[in-house]
């Protein structure tokens, strides 16, 4: 037979419904012959009953459901965000890569103007057209990790494009649009800004064209928007840039990276 002290130590486990049958039987036997413990247990059970069953909270207005549904319709995040999110997750590491390229392209010609020998801008540019494989791989893995299982499944269902070619495909217009600056000519920051915007617009166009081609039945064109103005006067004095050479794909990058879009 268990003591009162022991019985009271078992109260919580009993109320949590976690007491093994043997102990539960012992507890019941004790309660039957100890009125004090019985009263204690009755108080605990009464508290539980009241909390479980006594509903005196104010009530929501009847219009609550309509309001939630209307707000949901006004911002249909669940369906509209899927595409947006994929682009965001996949493109953000590439946006980081692109900004590194642009930073090099912008500042390299200036570095070359003093007498100290510096890394040749063209060399840097050609190296940076495709970011070094380890960086690219890390970025893509990070992007892949932040996807939910459902998004990963979705990615696997979509036509695949290797991570490398997707990077090149996004970066190529950026690099091409700003390439004229690496032949030793210095541009003003304002001109550079215009060129970068032009490159951004080309990227946007290319993305839209690609999407239209892959999903013609969707009738949907993603757009990163237009930010720039006409830069043809800026381009005119320079010889046409050679198309950016996509770097050879890093083989290991293709195994565990998503094939976006």
């Amino acid at each position: 037979m268990i003591t009162c002290l022991h019985a009271r130590q078992l109260f919580d486990r009993h109320l949590d419904d976690e007491l093994p049958p043997s102990l539960r039987a012992e507890l019941h036997a004790h309660l039957l012959q100890c009125s004090e413990c019985q009263a204690e247990m009755a108080i605990l059970e009464a508290c539980g009953d009241v909390i479980r069953l006594d509903r005196r909270e104010p009530k929501l207005a009847a219009s609550f459901t309509d309001r939630v549904m209307a707000t949901r319709r006004a911002a249909p995040v669940a369906s509209g965000r899927r595409w947006h999110r994929l682009v965001y997750y996949v493109a953000s590491p590439m946006a980081a890569a692109a900004s590194i390229v642009l930073a090099f392209l912008m500042f390299s010609p200036m570095l070359g103007t003093d007498d100290t020998p510096s890394v040749k801008p063209t060399a840097i540019a050609s190296e940076m057209i495709a970011p070094p494989a380890p960086f690219r791989q890390a970025a893509m893995q990070r992007a892949h990790r932040s996807l939910t299982p459902l998004e990963k499944a979705e990615l696997e269902r979509t036509p695949t494009m290797s991570a490398t070619s997707f990077l090149d495909y996004l970066l190529a217009p950026v690099v091409e649009g700003t390439k004229n600056t690496v032949d030793g000519t210095r541009r003003s920051a304002k001109d550079m800004e215009a060129l970068i915007m032009f490159a951004f617009d080309s990227m946007s166009d290319q993305l839209a064209a690609e999407f239209r081609e892959r999903y013609p039945e969707d009738g949907f064109t993603p757009s990163l928007g237009k930010v720039g103005s006409d830069v043809s006067p800026l381009m005119a004095p320079f010889p046409a840039a050679a198309p950016a050479q996509p770097s050879p794909p890093a083989p290991q990058a293709e195994d565990d990276t998503p094939g976006p879009i």
């Binding site: 929501l60 939630v68 911002a75 669940a78 899927r82 939910t148 299982p149 459902l150």
Partner: peptide, 15 residues
């Protein structure tokens, strides 16, 4: 809080 909880739940139903 209730309204916000429903909207958040619906917006991330996919995940």
């Amino acid at each position: 809080v209730c309204q916000d909880a429903f909207l958040r739940a619906f917006s991330s139903l996919d995940s």
